[in-house]
Deep mutational scan, measured.
Amino acid sequence: EDYYQILGVPRNASQKEIKKAYYQLAKKYHPDTNKDDPKAKEKFSQLAEAYEVLSDEVKRKQYDA
């Protein structure tokens, strides 16, 4: 799945936009606030993985290549 789609940001998003999108979605899908939703944990880990790659310039360049 596309990391940009997961975070809901365009491919040319700035680091600030990526961070903002991640924090909004992380708050929304955090397992502690969605105890009754088994998919929230999965969504949250996808968000974390996408953010880890896109927030790191080197990893992001490799991902975009």
Results as ranks from 00 to 15, higher is better:
K20H: 15
P31D: 09
A48R: 12
I6N: 03
Y4M: 00
D56L: 02
K43Y: 11
K61C: 09
V9I: 11
D32W: 02
E52G: 12
Y51W: 08
K41E: 10
P10W: 06
A21N: 05
R11N: 06
Q5H: 13
Q15N: 13
D64Q: 02
K20R: 15
V9W: 00
D32G: 11
S14F: 04
L54Y: 00
Q62Y: 07
Y63W: 03
E52V: 08
H30P: 05
A21I: 04
E49S: 11
E42V: 11
E57F: 07
I18G: 00
L25S: 05
K27N: 11
K27E: 14
K39C: 11
E52L: 11
A26C: 10
S14N: 09
Y23W: 11
K59S: 06
S14C: 07
K35G: 11
K28Q: 13
K39R: 14
Q46C: 07
Y29G: 03
D64C: 03
Q24R: 15
N34R: 06
L7G: 00
E17P: 01
Q62V: 08
K35Y: 10
E42D: 11
I18L: 07
Q46D: 05
S55V: 06
E49Q: 12
E42G: 06
Q24G: 08
Q24S: 12
T33V: 14
S55Q: 06
P31F: 08
S55C: 05
Q15Y: 14
P38K: 07
K35Q: 14
T33C: 10
K61E: 09
A48V: 14
K19C: 10
K43R: 12
D37A: 04
S45D: 13
K19F: 15
L7Q: 00
Y22H: 03
I18R: 00
L47G: 03
K61G: 08
K19I: 14
Q46A: 13
F44W: 14
P10A: 12
L54G: 00
A26F: 15
Q24L: 15
K27F: 10
P31W: 06
A65V: 09
V53R: 02
A50F: 01
L25Q: 08
L47F: 06
E17T: 11
Y22V: 02
E17C: 10
K61P: 03
K27V: 12
V53D: 01
S14R: 07
E1W: 10
K19T: 15
A48P: 02
Q62M: 09
D2F: 05
R60M: 01
N34T: 09
I18H: 00
Q46L: 12
L47K: 02
E17N: 06
E1T: 13
V58Q: 12
D37F: 05
P10L: 09
D32F: 03
H30T: 06
A26E: 07
K28D: 08
